[in-house]
């Protein structure tokens, strides 16, 4: 009886860990380097997660022009956004608006 409860608890832990550290359906990574989003356009499907990895020595944001997302992209850790509807989301950095990119979300 105790070992079943323990197993269940472990499974829950694994599920939680999975949900936290490996977003399901992770599809696209954008690297930020020298004030550029690389690649500048990425295509993902609804439900996928976009990850930004900032390699610059200053902080940036990935901010959609239509207000759907505004993600801080610090130097210290990757930042994520999960695509929830179809469309082309053009985005920029609020701090350095000369940085631009597009997330294309398909079905």
């Amino acid at each position: 009886m105790r070992s079943i409860a323990l197993h269940a608890a472990l499974w829950w832990l694994l599920l939680l860990a999975g949900a936290t550290f490996a977003p399901a359906g992770e599809a696209a990574s954008v690297v930020i380097a020298d004030l550029e989003f690389k690649p500048s356009t990425v295509t993902v499907r609804v439900g996928d997660t976009v990850t930004w990895i900032n390699r610059d020595f200053v902080e940036h944001t990935a901010t959609s022009r239509n207000g759907v997302f505004d993600v801080a992209t610090p130097k210290t850790r990757p930042a994520h956004w999960r695509a929830q509807k179809v469309g082309d989301f053009s985005y920029y950095c609020r701090l350095h608006p000369n940085m631009t990119g597009v997330i294309r979300v398909t079905r």
Partner: peptide, 12 residues
């Protein structure tokens, strides 16, 4: 790189 950062500041 500094120039790109400062050009961003100018636009901002």
């Amino acid at each position: 790189v500094g120039l790109k950062i400062f050009q961003g500041h100018q636009q901002h």
